[in-house]
Structure formats: structure tokens, C-alpha cells
Amino acid sequence: MDSNIDEIISVSSTTKLGKIVKISMSYNKESQLIHSIKITGDFFIHPEEVIEKLEHGLCGIKLEKQYLKNEIQLILENSEFFGFEIDSLTDIILKTCDEKK
């Protein structure tokens, strides 16, 4: 394993819409790129399979607000989702690495 890849870290947050969003991810400490990510919780996304596309699409994305937000926006463009917003999901992902620092 690349020594710069952090171990899997997890953070759970309640969005202002009352839903739980949990992030488990690993990322490269040096480049700040996401290596793997799992997004779980009691929210809704239609169609449901988009979550896998989102998790896949976020791999390799830099842990910076604008990069993350743009990618999430792009992948969820044709989906409907309830329980979180693009901004809150972005912030929870960023909070996950803050917890580590």
C-alpha cells in the first residue's frame, strides 16, 4: 500500500434535513486525492444506483471544496435526492479529513 494513503477514516453527520450521512474514505495525504469513498445513510437518491457512480466518480478528486462540489453536482445532475444538499455532502466529506488532522 502507498504509504501516503491514509487508513480508512469515518465520520457521521446529521444534515440539517435530519438525515444521517456517513462517510468512510481513504485519501492520499500528500496529493489530497480521494483514494476510496463510501457514502451511507438514511437519505434517498433516485435512481438508487447513482450512489455507486458517485463513489466511483469521487475517487481521484482533490479534497478541495470547489473540486468536490463540481464533481458531485455533475454526477447527481439527473438524479433527485432528499436528506442532504450538494453543499452539505461536500462539507461532510471535507469534515472527514479535518477529523483526522
Binding site: 456517513k22 457514502i39 451511507t40 438514511d42 437518491i45 438508487e48 450512489i51
Partner: peptide, 9 residues
């Protein structure tokens, strides 16, 4: 459990 949930819940 919901489609998006982990069994950790």
C-alpha cells in the same frame, strides 16, 4: 435497512 445504509447502523 435502507438501500444506502450500512449494517453498522
Amino acid at each position: 435497512i435502507g438501500y444506502f445504509q450500512s449494517t453498522d447502523d
